[in-house]
């Protein structure tokens, strides 16, 4: 069971969250090619180590957050709000597993 710190609600169990995939991808624009869009949806790095990913605090405040996690050790380096405009999310850098 991972313990993930929601920037708003604090540390909660993994089962309050749902996973949303790689948070570093840049979404193509409407003018981009089908190939670019296909890569955006289908091509993933699958790193062994640090991974920046989206999670949603779906059973809590429903905010989407960005989590930096080690895929090998499950160490979580930081969590932060995904939305640049939602107020009062405090970026957390507290390692839960250090």
């Amino acid at each position: 069971m991972l313990r993930i710190e929601c920037p708003w609600c604090g540390v909660r169990n993994e089962d309050e969250f749902s996973y949303g995939g790689d948070a570093t991808l840049e979404r193509p624009s409407d003018d981009d090619s089908i190939e670019a869009w296909s890569r955006f949806v289908h091509t993933r790095k699958n790193p062994a180590g640090k991974h920046t990913e989206h999670w949603q605090h779906v059973n809590g405040c429903r905010a989407w957050i960005v989590v930096e996690r080690n895929t090998l050790t499950h160490e979580i380096y930081s969590t932060a709000p995904a939305s640049p405009i939602l107020p009062a999310g405090k970026k957390s850098t507290r390692g839960l597993n250090t």
Partner: peptide, 10 residues
């Protein structure tokens, strides 16, 4: 207050 899972329900 908290929004969370109680008895497996939101």
């Amino acid at each position: 207050s908290a929004l969370t899972s109680v008895a497996h329900m939101n």
